[in-house]
Every structure is written in structure tokens, then in C-alpha cells.
């Protein structure tokens, strides 16, 4: 399959990039790892006349461990996250999700920023980032804005980003002590698949380890966007992390899902899987919280 023709721009600085985006007439798209957009272009689902290659932009690179949060540059690849032990230690669900993306090659090429901007409902990195209360940092013509990642997603393939804006990265506040997280995915295969359903859970236990001080649950591939299961969270917050409460929360998560039937699964089956995976992710996150410092 051949790519359609297009013009390629390779800005050297963030400023240059935003100017190029601002000056665009005709359809301009941003390319980073290229693993999503080039496939869509080969299928002629997208036919941008210009691509802006942002790979050279220093400002979008790197992991920065700040005082109270981690900043992940938009150009960080899934592979960089998957192989980072500190991320495994603090944000296990994120590392777990990134390890499930595509192949060794795709993980090495594809970026977190690309995964989020592509805005697939099944994007693996989104549910874990949501449970860690990620903020999206966006570069605009007038400077930077930061907003909750949850608000970043608007619909399948759609984000809040305006044509002149760029996602610079993600910030993740450090979770409190005694926090554990997990990302579980249901897919027919154990690799090279996308989520039929993905569930991320984060559990913070109280000092005694019996009660769920805080809990976050986010769902992938069962709504137009990655989705926080708020009523499920509320049902479990402050409750003991025990089977009856976990099951009740899982049932609520299933109710909150808005799945569709497609070639990968029926809506009903997806809803059932949400319940099962939510339950399992909560148990697993709880176990990890229990042994976390």
C-alpha cells in the first residue's frame, strides 16, 4: 500500500512548529511516531496535504521526575515507559498498559502523545493515565494550558486540540503511599491486539490497610472516549476492599460503560467483561497497594 502524496515540514523548535501549524492552509496534521497516522493515510482515511514532523522538538521529549509529579513528554515512546523501572514502581498500570501496545517495533516508534491525540476509545495508555489524574499540557499560540486528561478526549478520534495546538506532554501527580494500580485488558490474543475492553484501577488503602481510602477506575474501548467509572469509584471509596464491595463497584462500572457491538465483540459481552475486569483489576491493585511503601 502506498502513501498518498503530501508536503513534509520539519520544525526545529516549538515556536517554529506552532507557527507552521498556525499558517496551515489545507489540512495539516502532526506526525510523531507515525504508527497510527501513516496507516490511516495508507487506507486513505486521512489525506492531509501537509504533515508536521515534531520528532525534533526538545520541549516534547523526556521524562522529568519533579517534586510532586512526573512529567512525560509527548514524544516519549511506549517502549521507554515499558522499560522504566521507576514507572513500574510508581505507576504500574501505565507501564502494564504500555507493554501491551502493539509490537516491540510499534512500542519503539509510537509515542504516548500520539496514542492520546489519536484518541481511539481503546487507546491503551488512556485508562491508566486517567486513574493517575493525569493533566494534559497543551501548547497554544498564547502559551501553555493544562487541563485534566479526561476533558481532553471528545469522541472517537477527536480531542480538544485545536488545529494550531500541540500536546506537549502529560503530568502525573505522585500517588499517595499505600497505592497500587493495575491495567487489565481483554483481547482475543495476548499480544498484537487492541483492547476489546481495558480497565485500569488505582487503589489507595488507609493506614490499617483494610479500607479503600481512594479509588479510581477507568475504562477503555467501551465508550466513545476512554471513560472514568465515577459511580463505581464512589461506591467503593471509604469501604473495605472486600469482595462484596468490589463486586458492587464492578457492577456499577459495567452499568457506566456505553459499549457498542462491532467486529471484535458484542456490546453485551463488553459490558460483562467490564464487570469482570474491574473486579480483577481492583483486587490486583489492592494487593499491590498492600505491599506498596
Amino acid at each position: 500500500m502506498l502513501l498518498p502524496k503530501f508536503e513534509l515540514l520539519q520544525p526545529r523548535s516549538l515556536e517554529e512548529a506552532t507557527t507552521m501549524l498556525a499558517e496551515s492552509n489545507g489540512e495539516t496534521r502532526v506526525i510523531a511516531g507515525g504508527t497510527d497516522i501513516l496507516v490511516q493515510m495508507k487506507w486513505r482515511k486521512l489525506r492531509p496535504s501537509r504533515l508536521v514532523d515534531i520528532k525534533a522538538l526538545e520541549e516534547l521529549r523526556g521524562l522529568r521526575w519533579g517534586q510532586d509529579h512526573l512529567r512525560i513528554g509527548a514524544l516519549i515512546t511506549h517502549r521507554e515507559i515499558e522499560t522504566n523501572q521507576r514507572i513500574w514502581d510508581r505507576f504500574s498500570a501505565l507501564a502494564e498498559a504500555c507493554r501491551l501496545v502493539g509490537s516491540f517495533q510499534i512500542r519503539s516508534m509510537g509515542t504516548i502523545g500520539g496514542n492520546l491525540c489519536n484518541a481511539a476509545p481503546s487507546a491503551e495508555s488512556a485508562p491508566p493515565l486517567l486513574v493517575f489524574d493525569a493533566q494534559a499540557v497543551i501548547v497554544t499560540a498564547d502559551g501553555k494550558i493544562s487541563l485534566p486528561l479526561e476533558d481532553f478526549f471528545v469522541g472517537p478520534g477527536k480531542t480538544l486540540l485545536q488545529p494550531r495546538q500541540l500536546l506537549q506532554g502529560i503530568t502525573l501527580p505522585y500517588p499517595p503511599a499505600r497505592t497500587g494500580s493495575a491495567y487489565l485488558r481483554h483481547s482475543p490474543r495476548n499480544a498484537m491486539d487492541i483492547a476489546t475492553v481495558g480497565v485500569a484501577a488505582r487503589v489507595t488503602l488507609d493506614e490499617g490497610g483494610a479500607t479503600c481510602r481512594d479509588v479510581r477506575i477507568a475504562l477503555g474501548a467501551v465508550a466513545p472516549t476512554p471513560k472514568v467509572a465515577r459511580s463505581a469509584e464512589e461506591a467503593l471509596r471509604g469501604k473495605p476492599l472486600q469482595q462484596e464491595f468490589i463486586r458492587a463497584a464492578a457492577r456499577l462500572a459495567a452499568q457506566e460503560a456505553e459499549p457498542i457491538t462491532d467486529i471484535r465483540a458484542s456490546a453485551g459481552y463488553r459490558r460483562e467483561i467490564v464487570e469482570i475486569l474491574t473486579e480483577r483489576a481492583l483486587i490486583l491493585a489492592g494487593q499491590r497497594a498492600d505491599i506498596a511503601p
Binding site: L8, I31, T35, M109
Partner: peptide, 27 residues
């Protein structure tokens, strides 16, 4: 396959394995 699903086109770019079917030569 031409869309990054089969790996037959894998080459190393600065030591990193990439699907060369999804890698723009211009970059």
C-alpha cells in the same frame, strides 16, 4: 502487510527495531 502488523520490513534505526513500512525516509 504495509501497515506495521507483520514485522517483515523490520530494520534497525539507531539500534531500535522499526517497521520500515511506517517510517518516512525523509525523516
Amino acid at each position: 502487510c504495509s501497515e506495521g502488523e507483520c514485522g517483515a520490513c523490520t530494520v534497525l534505526v539507531d539500534g531500535i527495531p522499526v517497521n520500515s513500512c511506517l517510517f518516512l525516509a525523509a525523516t
